[in-house]
């Protein structure tokens, strides 16, 4: 576009269709980011709540896993939805980030931030850490590929043994800190992006994001900590302990 051309009011292109013009637009891609983020956020909350059953003992947790596997339509439906959401979330992030980086070819020598937060400025990095973690997490506790003591179906054993070995618990803790930053900014941001804003309720967005993020992160962090402090023990050792007590 030449520097002085004043465009005529936009003739909305009827041939490209509203869906493709929406997805090509900045706001459209932001909405994709927000809605897929909402799916992933909802899953993370349910995932954490479901896993709290580890504190009910091996039988309860393994029965929960059996119950989920007994509903293949739900299991695979959720898996497909999560995979599609993750792919679209990353697509939106990459395409928007590229546009954002390209928008300022020459940067400032000096700049001071006033309103932005550490969480908001590190979304890209926390997002990359989470993506790497999700791949690792699936290989570790779902497929067992990188888990030396993996026993298919024995979820309790896999979790407890998994957190007793090597760098796994430390990577897990790091990923949960990244999740905390990513979720806090993401949860209230998605409301802003889809237009949920009102002077009376805006404060609640931050409170809700902080509360739900703290809940999920603390819940998730409790698992490796409980294993490392010996609160959760592997079944074989706990069985031996029970036998010894008799």
């Amino acid at each position: 576009m030449s520097a002085n051309a004043i465009p005529t009011p936009l003739r909305l292109n009827r041939t490209t269709g509203r869906t493709s013009s929406f997805l090509a637009s900045s706001i459209g891609r932001k909405v994709v980011m927000a809605l897929t983020g909402l799916v992933l956020f909802g899953y993370v909350v349910v995932h954490m709540l479901g896993n709290l059953q580890i504190y009910l003992g091996p039988a309860a947790l393994n029965a929960y896993a059996v119950k989920l596997r007994a509903m293949p339509a739900l299991l695979w439906g959720v898996r497909v939805l999560l995979f599609a959401s993750a792919v679209l979330h990353v697509w939106a992030a990459v395409s928007l980030t590229r546009a954002n980086v390209a928008a300022r070819g020459i940067g400032y020598r000096e700049r001071r931030n006033r309103e932005s937060t550490y969480a908001s400025r590190t979304m890209r990095w926390s997002g990359v850490i989470l993506l790497l973690f999700i791949v690792y997490h699936l290989l570790h506790l779902t497929l067992g590929t990188v888990h030396p003591g993996f026993v298919p179906g024995d979820v309790y054993h896999n979790v407890v043994r998994g957190f007793q070995m090597g760098i796994a618990p430390f990577f897990y803790v790091l990923a949960m800190l990244a999740l905390g930053l990513h979720m806090y900014h993401g949860v209230w941001s998605l409301m802003q992006t889809v237009g949920l804003s009102h002077p009376r309720y805006d404060r609640l967005r931050y409170a809700f994001a902080a509360f739900i993020t703290a809940l999920v992160v603390l819940g998730n962090l409790s698992f490796p900590i409980a294993v490392m402090t010996g609160l959760l023990k592997d079944r074989s050792s706990s069985r031996a302990a029970t036998a010894a007590r008799r």
């Binding site: 013009s21 090509a24 954002n100 390209a102 932005s116 908001s120 979304m123 209230w188």
Partner: peptide
């Protein structure tokens, strides 16, 4: 729709809710 399309065409970045603008 017209203004957003023009905003995108001009090569501005997109909002990531830092709120530095306000």
């Amino acid at each position: 729709r017209g203004m957003v399309a023009q905003m995108d065409a001009e090569g501005f970045g997109t909002c990531t809710n830092h709120f530095e603008c306000e």
